[in-house]
């Protein structure tokens, strides 16, 4: 069986630019793949089209050229077999944490008894047991983020798309969340596409780091990160080989910072 769960095949995207007749080319021939259970980090300058790539994998947007294949099937409509963790937690404010996490199971017609068990399990694994009755506004930003991740894990999608999920968190919470995410994704065996701006985060979490260039964005490099797991998220340089891996990614990334203005 094909081990490639998600395949980006020659993706190109043009967007109409407001007030002009011409289109702007955002993505230009991006190809990479995610094998089963692998953690892929995508980094690139702001505005290069990282979020756009995730939207394509989720079936929210059809690429102008090329296609995304999910387990051999071309993605042409909303892809309900992926999970999506956005930058803001985006829990539904009118539902309690418990109801929020239960929602995907309700939508998928999972029987009530099993729902309860799965919600309990996943809340325990993200450390939110006891907060089922809280509304999102009664939770801290970090807790909302955990809730958002739990809501995705609960229906066990085989690909999880994460768009700068920890961007809005403070440094400490962020390290804790990174460490937890490493554990959770290893346990769940899910394939993860993780968009970030942060090279350290990318190197620490990923099996592969995909580096994109400035707009119109091309794939600069796809760098394997062979650090042993579990990795120490709190003291990056204590991981043997971290410095070299960081350097490899930074070398690619740096060329982009010099090449143009930062948006």
């Amino acid at each position: 069986m094909d081990d490639r769960v998600l395949l980006f095949d020659g993706i190109g995207q043009d967007f109409p630019s407001p007030g002009q007749r011409s289109q702007i080319r955002v993505l230009d021939g991006i190809s990479f793949e995610a094998a089963r259970g692998k953690f892929i980090a995508v980094i690139g300058p702001s505005g290069c089209g990282k979020s756009t790539l995730l939207q394509m994998a989720a079936g929210l947007l059809l690429p102008t050229r090329g296609a995304v294949h999910h387990r051999g099937r071309k993605v042409t409509s909303i892809n309900t077999e992926v999970g999506f963790v956005p930058q803001q937690a985006q829990l539904l404010p009118w539902k309690t944490l418990g109801e929020n996490v239960e929602l995907p199971l309700v939508l998928r017609g999972v029987p009530a008894q099993e729902r309860q068990k799965r919600v309990d399990d996943v809340l325990r694994s993200v450390g939110l047991t006891g907060f089922e009755q809280h509304f999102p506004s009664q939770l801290s930003g970090g807790m909302q983020k955990r809730g958002s991740i739990a809501r995705t894990l609960v229906y066990r999608p085989d690909v999880i798309l994460m768009d700068e999920p920890f961007g809005a968190l403070d440094a400490q919470t962020r390290m804790v969340m990174q460490s937890d995410l490493q554990t959770l994704s290893m346990e769940a065996g899910a394939t993860v596409i993780f968009v970030t701006h942060d090279i350290t985060e990318a190197v620490l979490l990923a099996d592969n780091v995909v580096v994109l260039s400035q707009r119109p964005s091309r794939l600069l490099a796809n760098i394997p990160i062979d650090l042993s797991r579990p990795r120490n998220m709190f003291e990056p340089f204590k991981n043997p080989g971290f410095a070299a891996a960081y350097d490899a990614v930074w070398t690619e990334f740096r060329s982009q910072l010099q090449a143009g203005q930062i948006h």
């Binding site: 309900t80 999970g83 956005p86 985006q90």
Partner: peptide
């Protein structure tokens, strides 16, 4: 209503 919220719910499997 936030478009992203709608998209997320669709991905979660809503009709």
């Amino acid at each position: 209503v936030d478009r992203e919220l709608v998209n997320l719910t669709l991905i979660m499997g809503a009709n």
